[in-house]
C-alpha cells in the first residue's frame, strides 16, 4: 500500500495542536511507516509538491493570508481536518469577535498601556502584511471541512486514533469522554 500523504498548517493558532501531534511520542516512528509528510512546519516544505490525502488545519482565519493558505490546502488535499478549538470555532483569537475591529486596532496600536513607544502612531498598513479580517472565522465557514477533532489541544491519542482510522479505513472508537468536555 502506498504511503498516504499528509500536510499540516497552523493558521490563527498557537502551534499547541502541532505540539500535540508530536506528543504521540515514539509512535511517530510508526506513523512514518504509514505516511509521508508534504507541506508542513514539521518538515518545512513550503509548497505542495504533490496531491495530498489528508490536510490537517490548526487555527481559524484572522487575516487574508490564513484564508489564502486554507484555500490552498482545500485545493490540494482530498480530506481536510479541523484540528482543535481554534480551527473549529475560532478559539481564543475569536474573543475579539464581539468588539469592532476598529476598536481592537485602536487599543492595540494607539491607546493600550503597552504602546507608549509608538510615538508616531504608526498603524500596520504595509502592503506586504496580511490584511486583517473583521472577525476570526472558523475554517468550515471559509472552505468545506470533512472532519473535526475537538480539544485545546486535542489529545495526542485522539489525533493518533483519528489518523490511523482514516489511513486504514477502519472505524474510529469515540468513547463518551472523548467528545464530552464540560
Amino acid at each position: 500500500m502506498a504511503k498516504k500523504v499528509i500536510a499540516t498548517t497552523s493558521l490563527a493558532g498557537c502551534f499547541g495542536c502541532h505540539m500535540s501531534i508530536l506528543d504521540i511520542d515514539e509512535r511517530i516512528l510508526d506513523l512514518i511507516e504509514l505516511v509521508e509528510f508534504n507541506k508542513s512546519p514539521i518538515d518545512d516544505i513550503k509548497t505542495f509538491t504533490k496531491r495530498v490525502d489528508i490536510g490537517i488545519i490548526e487555527g481559524g482565519c484572522c487575516n487574508s493570508e490564513n484564508v489564502e493558505v486554507l484555500k490552498y490546502f482545500r485545493d490540494n488535499c482530498d480530506i481536510l481536518i479541523s484540528l482543535g478549538e481554534c480551527a473549529i470555532m475560532g478559539g481564543l483569537p475569536a474573543l475579539r469577535n464581539g468588539i469592532p475591529i476598529e476598536e481592537c486596532l485602536q487599543e492595540a496600536y494607539l491607546d493600550g498601556p503597552t504602546v507608549k513607544l509608538n510615538t508616531k502612531k504608526i498603524l500596520p498598513n504595509d502592503a506586504e502584511l496580511p490584511q486583517l479580517l473583521d472577525n476570526v472565522y472558523p475554517c468550515h465557514e471559509v472552505v468545506k471541512i470533512d472532519y473535526f477533532l475537538p480539544g485545546c489541544p486535542p489529545r495526542a491519542d485522539l489525533i493518533w486514533d483519528a489518523l490511523v482510522a482514516l489511513i486504514t479505513g477502519s472505524e474510529m472508537d469515540l468513547p463518551y469522554e472523548v467528545v464530552k468536555f464540560d
Binding site: E102, L123, Q131, D134
Partner: peptide, 18 residues
C-alpha cells in the same frame, strides 16, 4: 458559505489607511 473576503477586510483596511 457566505464568507466574502473583500467585505471582511474592508473595515480594518479603512482604519489603518490601506
Amino acid at each position: 458559505n457566505t464568507f466574502d473576503i473583500v467585505k471582511s477586510v474592508e473595515a480594518a483596511n479603512k482604519f489603518v489607511g490601506r
